[in-house]
Design a protein around this nucleic acid. Sequence first.
DNA 1: CCGTCATATGTACAATTGTACATATTCGAG
DNA 2: CTCGAATATGTACAATTGTACATATGACGG
Lengths: 188, 188
Amino acid sequence: MSAARKASRPRRHDPERRDRLIDVALDVIAEHGVAGTTHRKVAAAADVPLGSMTYHFAGIEDLLTAAFTKLATTAADGFEDALRTADGTEAAREAVVGLITGELLGSRRNVLLTYELYALAARNPDVRRVTDAWMARSRTALEHHFDPPTTIMLDALIEGLSIHRALALDPTPNAVVRDAVRRIVTSS
Amino acid sequence: MSAARKASRPRRHDPERRDRLIDVALDVIAEHGVAGTTHRKVAAAADVPLGSMTYHFAGIEDLLTAAFTKLATTAADGFEDALRTADGTEAAREAVVGLITGELLGSRRNVLLTYELYALAARNPDVRRVTDAWMARSRTALEHHFDPPTTIMLDALIEGLSIHRALALDPTPNAVVRDAVRRIVTSS
DNA sequence: CCGTCATATGTACAATTGTACATATTCGAG
DNA sequence: CTCGAATATGTACAATTGTACATATGACGG
């Protein structure tokens, strides 16, 4: 019984605190950017003492890496799920449209976080591995439905349209998104 | 003569210093990111005293805004030039391919700076105006050759392929880039 | 040649940062 | 119940930051 107890209730007082800090860190990054993200801001937003940051993370770089790892992993999971259930090329096309127009990749917050991630990845090898893994996973998922050149194009189109959705004053209509995917896929 | 003297040699001791500081600032941003860009780093890189920064720029936000304004203006100029000289749809297509594969939009440094710009624009209205103007100019330039939906798609494709060129381990082959542009344009 | 003012510099300072660390609290084994 | 160890906290500090400002320097009209 003590073994079962140990499994269900770990020894930490607040076992989910680290995970919660990572989520809050992503919110802080989305609001203030990597440049404006500090231990104190995250601690205040999560309502934990400052010392809790240095206890759970080896340094602020460790916090950023953990946060972006979660962002990329979640996005890649959603990407794979959306494409896995698609049966046939037509369904796969519609799944791609759904990814662009949906909340996972298309939301302002997530696209914004992606900029920050890319910017950081260019100069931090640990973070770079996160983006590499993300790109590899999404590309592999696409290649289950499309040939390599089409995959590359779709991948780029998803990236570009997501950005425009997040930044443009008037977001691209869904019909245009669907048309774009169709043009790239049908002629392969 | 004194008037001519005045025109050719303004009263500043180093009249081009401000412009040079802006260029150096872009280098520093490309290397250390917005988060790591400080007055002292830029001053050291440009080999000017620290006080020179506060003299030429009202604050560090002013410096960043000036730097990104130059980045966007230069890019938009190149974009317009490349498309203006294109005569006919075929030439316009090739011009788009050239933009993606060329140095202006496709270089690692410039794409990286663009991430930083977007990230900052999302949260700073002054910088946001810079990206809005940039997007408007490139879209208008494209619309001189392509219909609106095609313009939207090409714009997104340029964005996405540029990113992949800068981040991917193996850059997209030029042939694939050309094929992608062709697929989007010919079916319009 | 000289005075005056824009241009340029060096220094100082308050504020904010990441992080170390001594202390407190809680848990679970025996 | 007791005790040791893991978990958590509050505080303190050195380093770095943006910026203000008193001073210096140079150009140019007179």
